[in-house]
Design a protein around this nucleic acid. Sequence first.
DNA 1: GTATATCCGACTATTTCAGTCAACTTTAGA
DNA 2: TCTAAAGTTGACTGAAATAGTCGGATATAC
Lengths: 161, 161
Amino acid sequence: MRLTTKGRYAVTAMLDLAIHAQSGPVSLNDISGRQGISLSYLEQLFAKLRRGGLVASVRGPGGGYRLSRDSSEINVAEVVDAVNESMDATRCHRRGDCQDGEECLTHHLWLELSDQIHAFLHGITLAQLIQRKEIRSTADRQDSIARNRIDAVLSTDDVTG
Amino acid sequence: MRLTTKGRYAVTAMLDLAIHAQSGPVSLNDISGRQGISLSYLEQLFAKLRRGGLVASVRGPGGGYRLSRDSSEINVAEVVDAVNESMDATRCHRRGDCQDGEECLTHHLWLELSDQIHAFLHGITLAQLIQRKEIRSTADRQDSIARNRIDAVLSTDDVTG
DNA sequence: GTATATCCGACTATTTCAGTCAACTTTAGA
DNA sequence: TCTAAAGTTGACTGAAATAGTCGGATATAC
Ligand code: FES
Ligand code: FES
C-alpha cells in the first residue's frame, strides 16, 4: 500500500479542475501555478487520469482539461487509483496466497484495513470536497495569489518593456 | 504513507511471538521457519522492535525474544510504527504547511484519512488477533508444517547418516 | 569450550518516486 | 497562412527506499 505525492497531487489537481470548471477547460499551466506542481509532472499524471476516463482534453489555444463526469460522480478512491497508487494493504492483492499459496497470519487484518480505507475514500466525492469551507478558502487564497502574480508580471512589462 | 512487507512482517512476527509465548523465549530461527521470513531480515526488524520497547531479548542457547508487555497491551499501530512505516497520509506530517507554509487543498482530507487508519490499527491488540479463529487455524497449520519438517530432517539423518 | 543465540554494520540489486527534457500534434485566432 | 498556445509522448535522471544478504562480534547455557 502506498500513498505518495503522486496520488496526493492527482487529487489536488482534480479538485482544482472541479473548482474552476465553470470557466471552461483548465490548462495544466494554470493548475501548475495555483497548486505549485511542476507542469511536466502534471502532464504525466493527466495522461493517466485521461486513460482512466476521469478527464477529457481540449487541444489548442484556450484548451485544457475538463472533468469527464460531474464532480458529484467522481470519488477520491477513483482518482488515487487512476494514477496507480493502490490503496490495497494486503501483500497478496486479496488473493490470500502469500505464504506458499496459503493465507499468512495477517491476511484478514490487512483485508479489513483495505476495506476501511476504500470505504472512506470511495465515500467522498469531489463535489463534497469543494463544498467544504476550508477548501473554498484555500482555493480563494490560491486564486488571489495567482491574480497578483499576473498583475506583477504585467506591470513589470510596462516598466521594463 | 506506506505499508510494505516491512510493516507486515513486523506484525506477523509479533503475532507469532504472542502465539508461542507460553513456551519461553521464541528464537528468530523458529519465526523464520514458520512465517517464511529470512532470518537476516528478521534480525533487522527485531532490532527496531527492541529499540521501540516492544520486545525483550534473551541471549545464548535457548534464548530468543519475548513480548515486553502483555499481548493485550500492544496494538498494531505501535508495531507498524516501530519499524518506521508511518501511516500518516499527509504530506506535511500534520503541520499544514506543504504549500509555501500554508495548507494545500487536500490537507484536511489526508488528515481525516490518517485518523481513520490510526483509529483502526490502534484499536486492535495482538491479544485480540490471536483469539480470532482464522488466525488460530493458520497458526496451527504453520506449527504442524514446522513439526513435519523437523521429523523429515530427523528421519533423513537416520537413513543417510 | 562449543553450539546456540542475539547483535551490529556494511553491502547490494531492484524498484519507485519525483521530476526534467525534447520533440511532436492539434487548433484558435490574427 | 502563420503563429503561439495547448495537449501528447517517450526517454531520461538523481535520490531514496525496499528487501534483502553477508561476515563477524558478543553473550551464555550446557
Ligand atoms: S496478505 Fe493476503 S495472504 Fe498474506
Ligand atoms: S498535506 Fe498538509 S498541507 Fe498539504
